[in-house]
Simulated scan of single mutants.
Amino acid sequence: MEEMMTGDRFFGVGCLTPKVKDAKDANDWKKRVVYTFEAIPSVHNFALTEIDDLDFYWEGKIGQSGDEEIPLPELGLMTFDVNIPSRIQKQLGILPGIGDVEEFKVLTFFHYVHPITYIECKSPQGGEVSNPSSAMAIVRDFLVAELKKQQSDIELFMIGPSPFHADFSLRAGKGEMEVGDGFSVTVEKGLGYDNITYFHDPSHASISRAVLWQLYSAIQGEFSYFYRFQSLRNARLHAASNLSTQSEELAKLFKKRGFSSYLTRTATVRHKLQSAQLDAISARMAAMQHSRSTKEDMEGLYPKEGGSALKGYLERVTEEVYLEELEGAEKILEVLESRHSQEVQRFATITFSLLGVIVGAVLTAAFRSWWG
């Protein structure tokens, strides 16, 4: 029997899925995930639907060895209910709190672009829910703790920001911008999290869970691309941070005084410099590739000029390319490369001069000995 919902609905958005690193195929992934989640006492009505194939999601870092591909369902759904008592929520220490909500309904769409998770807050009184985005953090930290108790080899695959930095709700009425499928939306900007309120056709007397899931389906494409763009952005950030760290560590080596430090640099720093320079090239190439692919994706998502409540969020993620950080590290490496070349030349000059003196001394001694 379909559950009828007479009040407003509140939910958070993020990316939160089980990660089975060594899953052989979809059946192996499903078997192990079902076994693990059904062993958690607070989890109920766990179900996997239409999961037939696995795809691989990159969890690596630009320019680093050992990049990891995580097998996750290519398409399908994962749903379950979870009860997290208020006392447990307080122990988790998630702020801001979420009031008296203890029941959460979790739905993950496995999408070929990127997985996306919705968590509905089931208010016991059917009233307003404050900070519904916190549901994502509460459920996430609770599941991490439960998996740790089981000593499970299953982890959680998460992409930040999870939660998405907005509180979501679905209400009867009319919003400022049309979404389609009978939905509209109003966005209120906030200092921390925004409020994104979706509205459904007010001619409907009540809102069923099917309507809420219809909204989930209507907006999942944009959110899937948001988290894909976010994963690319995270890789760019890691690459820029890694390159900055390498350049700073190399600069420290060149600041060291003394003959032993000079010899160490001359003998060992070449490999480190080349490695950092290769990482810089990789980061540059990745940034250009990301720029091209995200531009194509955005044009496909938004073929016409005009509005979308979520378009601005996606654009901001794609614009975070960290070129200033890359350029700063590249300038440091350029200076260090020049200095290293000078030191190598000086070392070679000194070495050959010393060799000349030694050879000259040896020959002089030999001639003296020969001529008696």
Rank of each mutant, 00 (worst) to 15 (best):
E2G: 09
M4F: 11
F10N: 09
G12D: 06
T17D: 03
T17W: 01
V20I: 15
K24R: 13
K24G: 10
N27M: 11
Y35R: 11
A39C: 03
S42W: 00
E50A: 15
D53H: 02
D55S: 06
G66N: 12
P71N: 02
G76W: 01
L77I: 09
T79C: 08
I88F: 05
I98S: 09
E103D: 08
L107E: 02
F110W: 06
P115F: 06
T117F: 01
G126S: 09
N131D: 15
P132A: 12
I138T: 11
R140T: 08
R140W: 04
D141S: 13
A145F: 12
K149M: 09
Q151V: 07
D153E: 13
G160K: 04
H165K: 15
H165S: 08
M177F: 10
K189I: 03
K189L: 10
Y193W: 12
Y193M: 05
R209P: 02
I219M: 11
R228W: 15
S231P: 08
H238R: 09
N242C: 05
L243G: 04
Q246S: 11
E248M: 12
L253P: 00
K255E: 04
K255A: 07
Y262E: 08
T266L: 13
T268Q: 11
L273P: 11
S275I: 10
Q277P: 03
L278H: 05
M288Q: 13
M288K: 14
Q289D: 14
S291C: 01
L301K: 07
L301F: 12
R316L: 09
L323K: 05
E325S: 13
A329N: 04
L333S: 05
S338F: 10
R339V: 02
Q342L: 13
E343M: 15
R346N: 11
T349V: 14
T351V: 04
V359D: 01
G360E: 05
F367D: 12
